[in-house]
């Protein structure tokens, strides 16, 4: 099943390509923020767009919101799927910064440690709150968030405020303050 991507008739191949090119960076960036891992983020990006081809949304409205939501879902699932993944995420973050030649090892480690703390906080939060933050801070407006997450537009502000407080509290508890 998973091996064959049948392209629905209503989506012409080049249409899909356009959709892909317009959105892959955003999707990749989102899942990278959450997983901190290049290969993992690539896999999840591929999986996300395959999901679109195999099980497209009922409506073509808010496609970007839809695909971003699928991406964060898949990323959360992937993070949960393996116990070892909790470390995997951290070590991957370390590995990425190792490649930045401009930094000293200490700076690299400090940054990597900070990254792993932020990721840790995102993963410890209520998943919906975490998604909300990730999407909002990757540029989604309240209206787009409401569409992507199937929430009423009026509730976004309150939910977002709650999510931000939750993040701050978990992050502070992890670190002992900003």
């Amino acid at each position: 099943m998973e091996n064959t991507a049948t392209i629905p008739l209503r989506i012409q191949e080049n249409e899909f390509e356009i959709f892909f090119r317009n959105n892959y960076r955003r999707v990749y960036q989102l899942v990278y923020r959450l997983t901190g891992h290049k290969a993992e983020a690539e896999d999840l990006t591929v999986e996300t767009f395959m999901r679109y081809l195999q099980h497209p949304p009922a409506t073509e409205e808010h496609l970007t919101g839809w695909i971003c939501r699928v991406a964060t879902h898949l990323a959360f699932n992937a993070l949960r799927s393996s116990k070892r993944r909790t470390r995997y995420e951290e070590t991957a973050a370390l590995y990425q910064v190792i490649r930045a030649p401009s930094q000293t090892p200490v700076e690299e480690l400090e940054r990597a440690t900070e990254q792993s703390k932020v990721r840790n906080a995102l993963q410890r939060m209520n998943q919906r709150s975490s998604e909300l933050l990730l999407l909002h801070y990757s540029g989604f407006s309240y209206k787009e968030l409401a569409a992507a997450l199937d929430l009423s537009p009026g509730s976004i502000g309150t939910l977002l405020a709650r999510a931000e407080k939750e993040f701050e509290k978990i992050y502070r508890d992890l670190k002992g303050g900003f």
């Binding site: 390509e17 892909f20 990278y32 290049k38 690539e42 081809l53 910064v97 490649r99 801070y137």
Partner: peptide, 20 residues
């Protein structure tokens, strides 16, 4: 804090597309 999570190495759109 979320921005420091960025900086993923450049990803090849062609490679991703081909895989999809």
């Amino acid at each position: 804090k979320l921005e420091i999570l960025d900086g993923p190495p450049e990803v090849s759109s062609e490679m991703l597309l081909q895989r999809i």
